[in-house]
């Protein structure tokens, strides 16, 4: 009887530990997504639109100089796409790790 209880208790501890490890794994993957997306966020706006604007302006996109286009148009389009990419990735991840709502 006592032994049985011990086993159940141990099992319970084990599931908690597993649960914790799983959640940590989930958080790590999330942080990976964030770093990747924030690098893109930085490159299209601060990189192409500001720091590299002069060399990029030598390239033309129709009537636009490329650096100017990134600063006033391109970076904004990329921002929108980024958010939806993140939403998609996270919805998948939430399901995979069973932390999604309902």
């Amino acid at each position: 009887m006592f032994f049985c209880l011990q086993v159940v208790l141990n099992k319970h501890k084990l599931t908690i530990a597993m649960e914790k490890a799983k959640l940590q794994e989930y958080w790590k993957i999330n942080l990976g997504y964030l770093v990747g997306l924030l690098v893109v966020w930085f490159v299209v706006s601060y990189g192409f639109g500001i720091l590299l604007v002069e060399p990029l302006n030598a390239i033309r996109l129709g009537g636009f100089k490329l650096g100017f286009w990134f600063a006033q148009q391109g970076s904004i389009y990329v921002f929108v796409v980024q958010i939806f990419v993140y939403v998609m990735l996270m919805n998948k991840l939430d399901k995979k790790f069973d932390v999604h709502e309902d």
Partner: peptide, 13 residues
């Protein structure tokens, strides 16, 4: 243009 849109990426992420 960049300043008032790029913040939404930070918000969402």
């Amino acid at each position: 243009l960049m300043g008032w849109t790029g913040g939404y990426v930070l918000l969402a992420l």
